[in-house]
């Protein structure tokens, strides 16, 4: 990414799936665009990207995401087996002086090529996904799509993030969970908005996500979707941990139905636009120290 001076990156993430990450990131992006801000939305849920369903961007470019894997230069190879000893992933083995490469197992660390004493390996590329760019209602939309049966989500996410960098504000829609693809999505963000719902599952997964962002040392706050559907345990947890709740969306069947049809909340249910505007105001008013850490009192 090329550095713009005042660029702010907000990642929208959650431990649990289906809590409303996509709803919140698309509506926040649209509010910003309607306010005349220059905004990019990165769909980093490359396994199941859904932002396009709501924003229906006109895609104007598409490029492959490639990863490297080793290829044997036969007339230089002596079958010495160093490459197989170096590989921690069983992606390259030597049997009867023949080198076999399993590209799907390769993590592109480059070790085998670096340490081959005969310089008999070279790195070549293979595609694991694509990155598409488009625009919708003034939002620059970038989405990644992992090829089916591929595993390297993080490589595609990295490709999406590299394509960004033109706007003042970047909103990242992360995949669910707390492991590698999520970390790859949020690690360079200035701020993480953790979305949850007020249920035992929502609370359990929120705690995991809070652990993750604290380990990464990124400021964060919480958004509660369907905030009146379950019990009060999520609110209590956030109080105890001094975590700010900066967005609460009620459990409204009309929101669920609009979602099912791929409609934007702020376009069809105008009364909710204020919630998103307020959330952004809280965010940009960063003088408020409580917003920054979720760690004071520890």
């Amino acid at each position: 990414m090329t550095a713009a001076n005042n660029r702010r990156t907000i990642a929208v993430a959650s431990g649990k799936g289906g809590t409303g990450k996509t709803t919140i990131s698309t509506n926040l992006a649209l509010v910003l665009a309607q306010q005349g801000k220059s905004v990019e939305l990165l769909d980093c849920d490359v396994e199941e990207p859904n932002c396009h369903i709501f924003l229906k961007p006109q895609i104007h470019s598409s490029k492959p995401v490639n990863v490297l894997y080793p290829s044997v230069i036969q007339d230089k190879c002596t079958g010495c087996g160093v490459c197989a000893q170096v590989c921690e992933y069983s992606a390259i083995v030597v049997v009867k002086n023949k080198v076999l490469v399993f590209p799907g197992l390769c993590h592109s660390c480059g070790g085998c090529t670096l340490f081959c004493p005969e310089e008999a390996l070279e790195e070549v590329e293979r595609q694991v996904g694509i990155v598409e760019e488009g625009s919708s209602s003034g939002i620059h939309v970038i989405q990644g799509l992992l090829d089916i049966t591929e595993l390297m989500s993080a490589a595609v996410i990295n490709g999406v993030k590299k394509s960004a960098g033109l706007s003042d504000i970047v909103i990242i829609d992360s995949p669910p969970g707390t492991s590698c693809p999520v970390i790859e999505s949020v690690k360079d963000a200035d701020f993480v908005l953790l979305v949850t719902e007020p249920t035992p599952f929502g609370l359990n997964d929120l705690k995991l996500a809070v652990g993750m962002v604290r380990q990464l040392g990124i400021p964060f706050a919480v958004a509660i979707n369907r905030c009146d559907m379950g019990d009060g345990e999520v609110q209590r947890y956030c109080d105890d941990e001094h975590i700010r709740i900066i967005l609460e969306i009620p459990d409204d069947i009309r929101i669920a139905q609009a979602y099912s049809r791929g409609e934007m909340i702020i376009n069809v249910l105008h009364e909710y636009k204020g919630l998103f505007v307020q959330c952004l105001e809280t965010f940009f008013n960063q003088k408020d120290p409580g917003l920054n850490t979720g760690q004071d009192g520890q």
């Binding site: 490639n66 990863v67 490297l68 894997y69 992933y89 992606a91 799907g104 197992l105 390769c106 993590h107 592109s108 660390c109 790195e123 590329e125 049966t149 591929e150 595993l151 390297m152 989500s153 993080a154 490589a155 990295n158 590698c180 970390i183 790859e184």
Partner: peptide, 9 residues
Amino acid sequence: KGGGGMGRG
């Protein structure tokens, strides 16, 4: 396809 992870070229 391996153990997954952060691997990327």
